[in-house]
Amino acid sequence: MGILEVKNVGKRFGGLKALDNVNLSVQENTVHAIIGPNGAGKSTLLNCLIGKLIPDTGSVMFDGQSVLGRKPHEINQMGISRVFQTPEIFGDLTVFENVMIPIFARRDGAFALHAFKQVMNDRDIRERTEAMLADVNMLDKRDAHAASLSRGDKRRLEMAMCLSQQPKLLLLDEPTAGMARADTNNTIDLLKEIKAKRDITMCIIEHDMHVVFSLAERITVLAQGTPLVEDVPDNIKGHPKVREAYLGTAH
């Protein structure tokens, strides 16, 4: 049984069937990609996984527990971290503080009223933050304002923030959308590096086939709200159903 089990999930927006009977099983320690043409329901599916949307039917189980009806911060506390299409970071804060916050959240839970300790006097948190920044080669930018970073560094920082929580599952929503080829390749390298260093399950939603085939160990193809095929990348490449979904049936 996989770490993430999606069973018979359906979601309607008015008359539009965004998801129809989706089944998905993500195995532990794999990189699982969900691909599909525009409007296939990729983002809707992702939003169902992280608590932003509640599906009309079906169940989503993570690590043996249902995530449905839980708030985003509760789902994160279960061990799911999310990387956004455009990096979501704390722009007004320094790089160092950006990484400290998720570490605090992992250690102290969703709310802790530590109003009279000094942040920087917390040795344990400080050391973990330094180690994490060293891990992604950002220690030299520790005092920079996060908003002043380059796009690539923002992505790197967001990744560091997610990884610092040691999540069981990392969800990536089009991590290379809108990036130049060089940045895309950097992101791919970063993700490969991350995967090589630790046991982590990743679920990537992606448009860019180059990214998908460089990273994924398993691929689910979504079209019109239903999974078409699920297989290893090599079998997906030439799959007639996939071609049809992407290129249309006009022969």
Binding site: H73, N76, Q77, R82, A110
Partner: peptide, 8 residues
């Protein structure tokens, strides 16, 4: 980001 970082 705060909510998706596990903070309420």
């Amino acid at each position: 980001r705060m909510n998706y970082t596990g903070l309420n």
